[in-house]
Amino acid sequence: MILKTFLIESRRSFKLVFTLFLCSFLFGFAAFSSFELKNYIEKLFSPTEWGIDLAILPKGTSPESLKRSLLTGRPEGLIPVALFKTLQAQITDEQRKSSLTQPTFKALGFLPYQKNGSTQIAILGNPEDFFVKDDRSIWSSIKLTDWNQQIDDLSNLPNYKTPEWGSQVLMGILIKGESEPLLKLKEMINRRTVAQAWVMKAGISTDDQKINQLETALYTFTCLIFLCLVPGLILSFIILSARRNEIFIVLKEIGWKQASQLQFILLQIVILFLIPCTLGVFTSPLILNWVNYLFILG
């Protein structure tokens, strides 16, 4: 009977119920997305501990774009997998010639992409010893996946295919090793390949002024949303409450108990506020990724 009364009342006050549902959804969405965006801005501009010595990236791609690509799952350029294989062959060859137990440098290919709204980084090679997982390390917040996984995930995406290399592509190669051989490698890569090598140092993308501007804009935007939503929510609840009191007068006369009235109020709060608010919170990352994909990076 409580549910039935709720359904009739919702149908009769559809505009009000819809407004309340929407406001609650946006409330949850705005609260969580502000939090997410703040973290995103901080990640994007905070000093980065790369934990690697050299990054081989497509020409025209800087370490800043590398960071952005790793956070958003959208590569800003591609290089062939063949380059990674050549490097691996070179490592094996050098190791064999000099009879060293350890190679002078190690290489790891990577390809960022999006899957179900979250960022994944497919790894080609052995990631052992590569990623230091401390608080400042960029890798601590990134999800690494097996290389074979991306072949299934990206097989139908045209963005990950080029006329020259087909789908045999990477976004870049990370190198860790001794400084002297790396300088030679950097020179060779820059001169003879389609890629460009960058020596990686901590704190490359720090820009305090930009962070402050973006955070101020974010706080202003959040305050505006809350200023619009909170009065809307309160007003909708007041109107709904007046209508509910009218219903309760009748329900009392037909013998409804006080407990049933409390259950009815609880049902309204759960369905018209808590559920849409939670939905807003949970869909926030998906919608932000979608907006990011369509309008910012697309």
């Binding site: 039935k4 009364t5 009739i8 009769r12 009218e246 219903i247 009748v250 006369e253 037909i254 013998g255």
Partner: peptide, 23 residues
Amino acid sequence: KIGYLHQDCHLIDHWSIQENLSL
């Protein structure tokens, strides 16, 4: 069960007759 008919004939004004009776 007690049935009470108020002198002001309380009905839920924004509901239809059928919805009022379905209670």
